[in-house]
Simulated scan of single mutants.
Amino acid sequence: MNGIRHDDIRHDDDMTALLSTPVDAGTLSRLHRRLEQAAERANLVDVAYTTIDSPVGTLLLAATPEGLVRVAYANEDHDRVLEALGRQLSPRILRAPKRLDEVAREIDEYFAKHRQVFDLTLDLSLSRGFRRLVQTHLPEIGYGQTRSYRDIAELVGNPKAVRAVGTACATNPLPIVVPCHRVLRTDGTLGGYIGGLEAKTTLLNLEAAA
């Protein structure tokens, strides 16, 4: 359970018995849900996560009590992302899909072309300084629109920081929700993207079609 020990949670006799005997997948799922509920009641979960399927592959979603903190593509290696979250935020991490229901719903609506603006509380604590400043302004780029790295540098008041804007976009911990895919090179080419150029193209084409 990534950082939460079984002895951190008080189990009833039934749960203790289940932990000591082989269980089928359905029982294991129900047990995990009960452990999830017990951990939340005991305030032992600092980072909740889940995974969802999408047109750009399996996405890892993670949230703290402050809000959505991470969206990760499969090419980032979800296990490594969780390990990093354990170091950067807290080792008390648990798969807790219920906490991410609203996030998953809004992302599904986005891919279904039913949503153009996300209405989610975000935790930007994984970014600092100039990178965080850039990422804070990225949602100002409208759905279906694009801007260049130079445009964003000028927007944040540092026209010479074109390369730094590129780095801020490449290290965005909340892709899709914070739309770094809408930022292109000054010459109009795609530039890099944390999820890969195929994913970036898919997102741009999705918005252009709508």
Rank of each mutant, 00 (worst) to 15 (best):
A38S: 15
E40H: 15
R41N: 12
R41D: 15
A42Y: 03
N43Y: 02
L44C: 08
L44R: 14
D46A: 14
V47D: 03
A48S: 15
A48T: 08
A48L: 05
T50R: 01
T51R: 12
S54N: 06
V56Y: 01
G57I: 09
G57T: 10
L60I: 10
L61G: 00
L61S: 03
A62P: 00
A63I: 09
T64E: 01
P65K: 07
E66L: 10
E66Y: 08
E66G: 08
G67T: 11
G67R: 02
V69E: 01
R70D: 02
R70P: 00
V71R: 01
A72S: 15
A72L: 10
N75E: 14
E76D: 07
E76C: 05
H78P: 07
H78T: 03
D79S: 11
D79L: 10
R80S: 13
R80L: 13
V81W: 04
L82D: 01
L82H: 00
L82R: 00
L82A: 06
E83K: 01
A84Q: 11
L85E: 00
G86R: 00
G86H: 02
G86L: 12
R87Y: 11
Q88F: 08
Q88K: 15
Q88P: 06
L89V: 15
L89S: 02
S90V: 09
P91M: 07
L94S: 04
L94R: 12
R95G: 07
R95Y: 14
K98H: 13
L100E: 09
L100P: 01
D101G: 11
D101N: 14
E102A: 13
A104G: 11
E106S: 05
I107C: 04
I107A: 04
D108Y: 06
E109N: 14
E109Q: 15
A112H: 06
A112C: 09
A112W: 07
H114Y: 09
H114F: 04
R115V: 07
R115C: 04
Q116G: 14
Q116C: 13
V117P: 05
V117N: 13
V117S: 15
F118E: 08
D119M: 05
L120Y: 06
L120Q: 07
T121N: 09
T121C: 10
L122G: 10
L122E: 10
L126A: 03
L126I: 06
L126N: 01
S127V: 14
S127C: 08
R128C: 04
G129F: 01
G129R: 00
F130M: 05
R131A: 13
R131Q: 15
V134W: 01
V134S: 04
T136E: 13
T136D: 05
T136G: 04
H137F: 12
L138P: 01
E140Q: 12
Y143R: 11
Y143P: 06
Y143H: 14
Y143A: 06
Q145A: 12
T146H: 14
T146M: 09
Y149N: 13
Y149F: 08
Y149H: 12
R150C: 04
